[in-house]
């Protein structure tokens, strides 16, 4: 049970138990869970279980403040929408993940994910100390990964803050009976989470 504990995220109760940046979000679980929990989307098939949870600016600020991030960095996070994303390879085969195969679209336009490289450049412009850059990097979902059988990974995906809802279609690939199989996971009507009025 211990290893299961260590490799999974109890999504229902919002306690992150998993590896990767996700565990960061322990700090988010306590005070702000009701909003995000009600807006999370879960998509599951025989290969993958994937969860996307919108985070409010207040949630993210609280988390990074807890990690002693400078105010300039925390203010910068408010320009982005954060979605905690958990991916579980349910199959017995390796599943390949690559951001470049993901599509995010509103009714009118395409939405771009903010890459780790773009965040890095922004932190450099703001002279954010290296240790905070490093921690921030660990809070993001890996951009490419070969998911091992039964592996869970998680982290945040980020887009520029916007009002319009959008759809996310994530494509993964695996090899099944010596054939390449594409796995499609769709999340409709995702929205940036807003802080609740005090």
């Amino acid at each position: 049970m211990y290893s299961l504990y260590s490799m999974c995220m109890d999504i229902k109760h919002f306690q992150v138990l998993s590896i990767t940046p996700l565990m960061l979000l322990i700090g988010l679980s306590a005070s702000h869970s009701s909003y995000a929990a009600s807006n999370r989307q879960v998509n599951e098939n025989q290969y993958i279980k994937m969860v996307v949870i919108p985070r409010t600016p207040q949630q993210m600020a609280a988390f990074y403040e807890g990690r002693e991030f400078p105010k300039t960095a925390i203010d910068e996070t408010r320009s982005a929408c954060f979605f905690t994303t958990v991916i579980h390879n349910k199959s017995k085969n390796i599943i390949q993940h690559d951001y470049s195969r993901w599509q995010l679209n509103t009714d009118a336009t395409t939405v771009s994910l903010i890459s780790k490289q773009q965040w890095k450049q922004r932190w450099k412009q703001l002279n954010i100390p290296q240790r905070f850059q490093s921690t921030f990097r660990w809070t993001l979902l890996p951009e490419q990964l070969d998911f091992q059988a039964a592996e869970h990974e998680g982290g945040n995906i980020t887009i520029l803050r916007q009002a319009a809802p959008f759809d996310l279609v994530a494509y993964f690939t695996t090899v099944e009976q010596e054939k390449i199989k594409t796995i499609r996971m769709e999340f409709k009507n995702l929205r940036c989470a807003e802080d609740t009025p005090q």
């Binding site: 590896i19 990767t20 940046p21 565990m23 290296q130 240790r131 490093s134 660990w138 890996p142 990974e153």
Partner: peptide, 13 residues
């Protein structure tokens, strides 16, 4: 500064 960890390229922590 986290740079040693970066060099090892772990999948996560």
């Amino acid at each position: 500064d986290g740079l040693t960890t970066e060099a090892w390229k772990p999948r996560g922590l």
